[in-house]
Computed example of a mutant assay.
Amino acid sequence: MRVDVWLWAVRLFKSRSASASLLRAGRVRVNGVVAKPSTPVKVGDRVTWRDPLRDRIVVVKELLPKRVGAPLAVEAYEDQSPPVPTREERAVVGLRERGAGRPTKRERREIDRLRGLRRG
């Protein structure tokens, strides 16, 4: 089964095109390898990607050929993602002291890395 169809069928993405665009951008990995939309997925595979708030890690428990209701979709995968950070935890990351001036290139990269905008 194609990974873009499976992600859509288990309701992790609102549309198949949304899952496919993330896959085409190279942001989804299947068992640690960057995946394309047509990458086959099987039971036991580990699928990872970055949500706006956290890293998502799901393990395939069941292959669904069609989109199903939410109660059935939740049973098709095991979510191993870390919990969503609280608002306070998100606000602390990347803050600078008032009057500290413009960040240097090195400081800017560190801020981006802490916020999860860039990997590096």
Rank of each mutant, 00 (worst) to 15 (best):
Y77N: 02
A9Q: 12
A18I: 15
P40M: 05
I57C: 10
A73E: 05
R113Y: 11
L72K: 14
F13G: 01
A73G: 06
V93D: 03
V5H: 10
R11H: 08
R90L: 14
L23S: 07
R106V: 14
P103F: 04
I57K: 08
S81Y: 02
L72C: 03
L114N: 14
G44K: 09
R87V: 15
A91K: 15
L63C: 06
T48C: 12
A91N: 12
K105V: 15
W8I: 07
R113L: 13
T48N: 09
R106F: 05
V30M: 02
V41L: 00
L72Y: 06
A70E: 11
D45Y: 06
P83W: 09
E75C: 09
T39V: 04
A20S: 14
M1W: 09
S19D: 03
P82Y: 08
R29Y: 04
G116P: 01
I57F: 05
R115D: 02
A18F: 07
L114W: 12
R16P: 01
I111L: 11
R11V: 04
Q80G: 10
R115C: 08
K14R: 14
P40G: 10
V41Q: 00
E89Q: 15
A70S: 13
E62C: 02
D112E: 15
K14H: 08
N31V: 02
A73V: 05
G94F: 05
F13K: 14
L95A: 10
K66Q: 14
I57A: 09
D55G: 14
T86I: 08
L7H: 02
R2D: 01
R118S: 11
R108T: 14
Y77T: 07
R29H: 11
R102Q: 01
R16N: 09
G44Q: 07
L53S: 14
T86S: 15
R56C: 12
R27G: 12
V41I: 10
G32T: 10
R119W: 11
A9F: 03
R115I: 08
I111P: 03
P103D: 02
V33T: 11
R87D: 08
R113W: 08
E88N: 09
K36S: 03
L72D: 13
R98Q: 11
V92C: 04
G69H: 10
A100G: 09
A73M: 07
K105H: 11
G101Q: 04
P40T: 09
R56V: 15
K66V: 13
R102S: 04
N31M: 02
D55E: 15
G69M: 04
V84L: 12
S19H: 02
G94T: 07
R67H: 07
L12T: 09
V58K: 04
E107M: 02
Q80P: 03
E75V: 14
P85F: 11
S81P: 08
G94N: 06
A91S: 15
V28E: 00
L53F: 13
L72S: 09
R102L: 04
V47W: 00
V92I: 12
I111W: 03
V58G: 01
A18T: 11
K36W: 07
V3L: 01
V47E: 06
L117G: 07
S17D: 13
A70Q: 12
V92L: 13
E75S: 13
E89N: 10
E97W: 10
Q80L: 15
V34K: 14
R56Q: 12
V30W: 01
R11S: 05
P37W: 06
V68C: 04
R113G: 03
